[in-house]
C-alpha cells in the first residue's frame, strides 16, 4: 500500500476510498446490496454477536442475498445486545436489538427480503459530529 507522504496524499486517498466504498456498496447491483453492521465489542461478543454474524453470513449466502457484513465497535445499546444495524438500499440504517438466531432469521426473511419492519428496533438517540 502506498504511503501517505503529505496532507494532499491523505485527501486524495480519502476521496479514492470513498468512491471505492461507494462502488463496493452499490457498484455491481446498484439496488440490491444490503449492508449489515454487527456490534462486536467485548460485550457484544459475550452476548453472542459472533454467532449472529456467522449465522447471517451463512444465511445470506444460502439465500443468495448480496450483502456486506462488517463488524463495528460498541453502538452503546448494552441493554439490547447483540445489536445489528441493517441498511437496505435507499433506506436509512435501522438498528435491531436483542438479536438471536431466530430474530436474525426474521430480520432476513421479513425486513431484508420484503422490506417490512419487524419488532426490536432501537431508536437512535444521539447526534454525531459527522452528520450534523
Amino acid at each position: 500500500m502506498a504511503k501517505v507522504k503529505s496532507l494532499s496524499d491523505l485527501n486524495k486517498m480519502r476521496e479514492e476510498l470513498q468512491s471505492k466504498m461507494n462502488l463496493r456498496e452499490k457498484g455491481e447491483h446498484p439496488d440490491s446490496i444490503v449492508q449489515i453492521k454487527v456490534s462486536m465489542a467485548t460485550c457484544g461478543i459475550a452476548s453472542g454477536a459472533k454467532e449472529i454474524m456467522d449465522y447471517m453470513i451463512n444465511e445470506l449466502d444460502n439465500r443468495a442475498i448480496d450483502a456486506v457484513i462488517t463488524q463495528t465497535g460498541c453502538m452503546g445499546y448494552c441493554y439490547a445486545e447483540p445489536t445489528i444495524e441493517v441498511t437496505l438500499p435507499d433506506n436509512k440504517p435501522i438498528v435491531f436489538g436483542y438479536v438471536d438466531t431466530k430474530k436474525a432469521q426474521e430480520i432476513i426473511e421479513v425486513y431484508i427480503q420484503t422490506g417490512k419492519l419487524v419488532d426490536g428496533i432501537i431508536p437512535v438517540n444521539y447526534e454525531t459530529v459527522n452528520n450534523e
Binding site: 462488517t70 465497535g73 460498541c74 452503546g76 444521539y126 454525531t128 459530529v129
Partner: peptide, 22 residues
C-alpha cells in the same frame, strides 16, 4: 420520542460506525 438527541457523540463519533480493524 423523548430521548431523541439528548446525546452528542464526539469521543464516540466512530464507535459502531466503522470497522475498527480497517
Amino acid at each position: 420520542m423523548v430521548k431523541y438527541k439528548k446525546q452528542i457523540r464526539i469521543a464516540l463519533r466512530n464507535c459502531g460506525f466503522i470497522n475498527p480493524e480497517n
